[in-house]
């Protein structure tokens, strides 16, 4: 009971903070709209026509892009969530948590869960626009997509926290976030089908857990898996397993790293 208590209260805090920060909520929604409008619709109109449907295995570009954007937006929000650890260092709240009798590994777990829920909400907003823009998404796949979204959110939030635990300045963290999120997002197969890319690029893509998350979300929301078509051994079960294992590993790493955080 006591364990759940510490997890719950830190999750509560992260969510409360997000809801309180109206500009952050507005920023998320506006970003999503702009991305979908200018990038999504832009390419959707460019790639209109039968000949392109072959590329996307029968999907139109919006149906191809939207489920993947759900995953990448969760990824970016989760990873960025780690920055709040640095803010807490700077504004001193971290000391309050470190000096409390609640175990540090549990307070950080609660924090990761709270931030995961926040980024899942983020993804849901994105997806709501998606459902408004195209009728090709399958609502029946939503629960599975949310489950995948949550698992990846926990993993990437943990990754953000682990990196933030070792850093002092938000600027430095932002730099790292930038250099990691951009290639991972581009390589995830969210914006173009990976099966057309050179082999070395595919190998790099397969190293990143985000690639599996994108493919799974697309599979559950549209019924098409691009990875499975190229690599028959990559069934949905294998992909899900890889994702869960990576997320758990990242979570344990984050807990370990945070235990070692000091105020020095």
């Amino acid at each position: 009971m006591k364990m759940l208590e510490s997890i719950y209260i830190m999750a509560y805090r992260q969510i409360k903070r997000f809801v309180r920060a109206k500009s952050r909520v507005a920023g998320v929604i506006i970003n999503n709209i702009l991305w979908l409008l200018f990038f999504g619709l832009g390419w959707a109109y460019t790639l209109r026509g039968q000949q392109f449907q072959v590329l996307f295995k029968g999907l139109d570009y919006l149906a191809f892009l939207l489920p993947a954007t759900f995953a990448t937006s969760i990824f970016q929000a989760s990873f960025m969530g780690g920055i709040s650890v640095i803010w807490d260092k700077q504004f001193g709240f971290l000391k309050e948590v470190l000096v409390a009798p609640a175990p540090r590994s549990l307070t950080i777990l609660g924090r990761a869960l709270g931030d995961s829920i926040v980024s899942l909400l983020n993804g849901l907003i994105m997806l709501a626009f998606g459902f408004a823009l195209t009728s090709k998404l399958n609502p029946a796949g939503l629960p599975m997509a949310l489950a995948i979204g949550f698992v990846m959110a926990v993993g990437f939030t943990s990754m953000g926290i682990a990196i933030a635990s070792t850093m002092r300045s938000p600027e430095g963290f932002q730099l790292i976030v930038g250099t990691i999120t951009m290639p991972m997002t581009l390589l995830s197969g969210a914006m173009f089908p990976l099966n057309m890319t050179p082999e070395w690029m595919q190998i790099l893509a397969l190293v990143s857990p985000l690639t599996y998350a994108v493919d799974l979300c697309r599979y559950f929301l549209t019924g098409v898996s691009f990875l499975n078509m190229v690599y028959p051994w990559l069934t949905q079960e294998v992909e899900a397993l890889l994702l869960v294992v990576t997320s758990l590993a990242l979570m344990v790493i984050a807990m370990r790293m945070f235990e070692k955080t000091t105020i020095e």
Binding site: F91, G92, K95
Partner: peptide
């Protein structure tokens, strides 16, 4: 403990 530097959550 009351720390020398602030340690409150400003957004709450």
């Amino acid at each position: 403990i009351v720390f020398q530097d602030p340690s409150l959550d400003d957004n709450l």
